[in-house]
């Protein structure tokens, strides 16, 4: 009988350990929401007003989030390096699940809108249709779009397009949130789209460009404004 015990116990232990959860740790679910000041985002609807004085609508909002770091009150940090693609129209991409999140109180959250320089290289992300569509062509420096925010605005009653695209390592958007409210393993982050167009810089389509991809100066403004788009 002893040989049977010797055979079974290790196998059973391996099987049992495979099912064991990390004690004191659970998934953290981040829910991404969108608003324009006091209004919820409704795509394709000319309903919003930006600081520079234009009425506008949003037709597309795609972006990456990465580099999550949670600092707990006891000084420990939780790092999560995965890159998440978000299409604001697609419900499934607006919920992010971070595994093995520690118990305790978090007093600071930081992350990037975009992808850090180690991963922001052509073909570095898995070749999915979404990642391929987010490609930043090598002819323009390579890597990926960090953000694609597109829509129409009214200029003297004439509808015109805007395409706020951000890429390139120097325009990575760092975000910091103090004392994030995490309740029952859930954290809600809301992007106020108007923040892309103000604070610290007033972004005016006519003055700074209705598209940004080939303009470092436009991306510089947008990147700086992006730091507090989430709350």
């Amino acid at each position: 009988m002893n040989w049977k015990v010797l055979l079974i116990v290790p196998v059973w232990l391996v099987a049992a350990m495979g099912c064991k959860k990390n004690e004191g740790k659970n998934d953290l679910q981040i829910q991404l929401n969108y608003k324009i000041d006091n209004l919820p985002l409704k795509f394709d609807t000319l309903l919003y007003h930006c600081e520079a004085g234009y009425n506008y609508e949003v037709t597309r909002l795609h972006y990456y989030l990465s580099g999550f770091v949670f600092t707990m009150t006891d000084g420990t940090m939780y790092n999560h390096n995965q890159v998440y693609y978000v299409d604001a129209r697609q419900v499934s991409t607006n919920t992010i699940s971070l595994p093995s999140f520690p118990k305790g109180i978090c007093n600071k959250l930081s992350f990037y809108i975009g992808i850090d320089s180690l991963k922001n290289k052509t073909d570095s992300l898995p070749a999915t249709f979404d990642n391929i569509n987010m490609g930043w062509p090598d002819a323009m420096g390579g890597g990926y779009h960090f953000v694609k925010l597109e829509g129409h605005y009214l200029d003297s009653a004439v509808s015109k397009g805007f395409a706020m695209h951000i890429g390139k390592n120097q325009f990575l958007v760092p975000v910091e949130i103090n004392n994030p409210t995490i309740t029952s393993g859930k954290l809600s982050l809301t992007m106020n789209i108007n923040e892309w167009f103000r604070n610290p810089y007033l972004y005016d389509f006519k003055l700074h460009g209705s598209y940004s991809m080939n303009s470092d100066s436009a991306m510089q403004l947008l990147s700086a404004n992006g730091k507090d788009v989430f709350d």
Binding site: K160, G161, S210, Y211
Partner: peptide
Amino acid sequence: IDPLMVLPE
């Protein structure tokens, strides 16, 4: 029309 087709520039 797609915004990319009506950029004022």
